[in-house]
Simulated scan of single mutants.
Amino acid sequence: MAQTSSLLISLKKSLKAHGYTYADVGKHIGLTQASIKRLFSEENISLQRLDQICQMMDLEISDLVHLMAEQQAQLQQLSVEQEQELSDDLGLLLIALCVLNKWTMDEIIDHYKLESHYCILKLARLDKLKIIELLPGNRIKLLVAANFGWRENGPIQAFFQRTIGQEFFNSRFNQDEESLLVLNGMLASTSNSEFQRKLKRIAQEFEVLNHEDSSLPLSQRFGVTVVLAIRSWRYGLSQHLFKPN
């Protein structure tokens, strides 16, 4: 499944680079745009259809696999020590999050009203951490893979759980760009595992959309944070209502 996801991410990036849309793909292989979107979201593309889509771009499937391998060679995860350095320096972490979302140095400076020298120092540190390459003219080249992520239970995840959780949920979630779903039920282990797989698939789709929108001007994008979680838990209120004798 992980290889399939990576291959489809590479396919989507190639289609975008060639200027093709889902509608173009559908027209080429005789399916509706909605059907193409469903094939990608469900990661259910046959080799025959994959070959047809590659032919649109004058590519062989082997070319796509090679592209995927090149992308996977990029940084997928930081070490615990590197993440700790970011979480210990809020300015560095803020700028790291910006560059991971394809902000330019000018956009970072303008939005947060930072001094150029300060921003350059932080970018130089990210360069040493191999997250970016700081190019002439202070241009930023990302060195991370498309599926880059923070370490599970690592310093960055712990930092957000410790400092951001209360602020994040201090909202009525009633704006157009907000949504809060609270589900409660009784699932078998197999159903729980299936639901977790679906959550991970949604997370992958979010990363694809984030990548696709990264080329848009900053004025057309806004920060979004998604929390996906599932655990075995009964409402904490029960601990107070039903105390053991």
Rank of each mutant, 00 (worst) to 15 (best):
W150P: 00
S10V: 05
G154Q: 04
S6A: 15
I132H: 05
E81H: 13
N174P: 00
P136V: 06
L64C: 03
R151G: 00
L50Q: 02
L199P: 00
Q239E: 15
H240R: 13
G137I: 07
M68G: 03
K102Q: 12
Y20H: 11
Q157P: 00
D58W: 02
S116P: 00
L216N: 01
T21G: 03
Q157E: 13
T104L: 13
A17Y: 03
Q220S: 12
M105W: 07
H28L: 10
V80S: 12
S46A: 02
F169W: 12
H240N: 11
E167I: 10
T225N: 10
R231W: 10
L126D: 02
Q220N: 13
A73D: 14
K141I: 06
Q196T: 05
P244L: 12
N101W: 03
V25H: 05
L143F: 04
P155M: 02
S5P: 00
S116R: 13
E177C: 02
Y235T: 07
L135G: 04
L94W: 08
C119E: 01
S35L: 10
Q82L: 06
L216A: 10
Q48E: 11
T21R: 14
L218K: 10
A188G: 08
I164W: 15
L135Q: 15
M105G: 01
K130S: 10
E83G: 05
A229K: 14
G236R: 13
G185C: 05
E212N: 08
I36S: 04
K198C: 04
R49W: 08
N138C: 02
I156F: 02
A203Q: 10
I53N: 00
V227S: 06
Q77A: 09
R151F: 04
Q77S: 09
E205D: 11
T32N: 06
E207A: 03
E212M: 13
H240I: 14
I29C: 03
F168M: 08
A203T: 06
L8F: 09
T225K: 08
K141F: 05
L50A: 00
D106I: 09
C98Y: 11
K37T: 13
N147S: 09
A73V: 03
W233A: 14
I140Y: 04
A23L: 14
S171W: 04
G19A: 06
D127K: 06
M68F: 01
M68Y: 02
T163Q: 15
P217Y: 08
E133P: 00
D213R: 09
E81G: 04
V182Y: 02
A229M: 14
K102Y: 14
N101C: 11
N192E: 12
K13G: 14
K13N: 14
D127P: 01
E42H: 05
I29W: 04
S189C: 03
Y22A: 11
L78W: 03
N170V: 06
L180K: 01
A23S: 15
W103T: 04
Q204S: 03
Y112R: 07
F168E: 09
S214E: 06
R172Q: 15
F195M: 12
L75K: 14
C98A: 14
L135K: 15
V25R: 03
E81M: 09
L93E: 08
G30F: 10
A146W: 02
G91R: 10
L64A: 04
Q196R: 14
E85N: 08
T163L: 09
T21W: 05
S232D: 15
R139Y: 12
I36C: 03
